[in-house]
Amino acid sequence: MFEVKQLNKCYGNKIIFKNASFKAEYGNIVGLLGKNGVGKTTFFNCITGVCDSSILNADEIKHTRFSYMPRFEQGEWNDTISDLARLLPVISDGFDKEYFKQKTDEIFKGKNLQLKALSTGERVALEFIITLSRNAQVYLFDEPFANLDSHYREFIKRELISNYSDDKLFIISSHDIAELEMLFSHVAIIKDHGISGLYDCERIRESGDTVNEFFMRETI
């Protein structure tokens, strides 16, 4: 069970989270939903320590192994994909070199490109592959579909299913609810400075709603 207890976070006078809690079993794919600006990215940043926050069980969370999908800024990166293949295992324990090689070969057709030569979509796909290559318990994907064409979206969905296992928790923030809802086992909604409990997607559909309709109603 992965649990965040009483998260508090503000930016200056602006409250983002007030005693927000989150709880999910490993072996699930959880969609983290919320309107723009409610704090989905901030939630990821808080639990991974990228930004400061107050969390009741911070010590416990510190021992969780996270893999947080990185975001490379577009810039003058001279490094190539094979440079990454060499460097990443050094800084990340248990990095799956074979998986990284196999998937980057698949996406980039075996070409050893420089990072600055990648399109936005290719960069996102690379960031995604890095995330899954790491050995972690909780995997965090922040809008993994942003700027991706249908081929890459299919690739990402396929890899999420292939890499899913009982000892891993995937948390995916996304506005592409309709496209991802078949992958989600549950969704949680961020609103009013808090995080809802988990809703089982099949239960939602049982009541005759799509997950998207449910989200719209919950966030009016």
Binding site: G27, N28, K157, R158, I161, S162, Y164, M182, L183, S185
Partner: peptide
């Protein structure tokens, strides 16, 4: 379970059900 999940693009937990 995983194969069918992949073919249909749905969560493996669903296939268990």
């Amino acid at each position: 379970i995983r194969e069918l999940g992949l073919t249909l693009g749905v969560n493996p937990n669903t296939i268990v059900h």
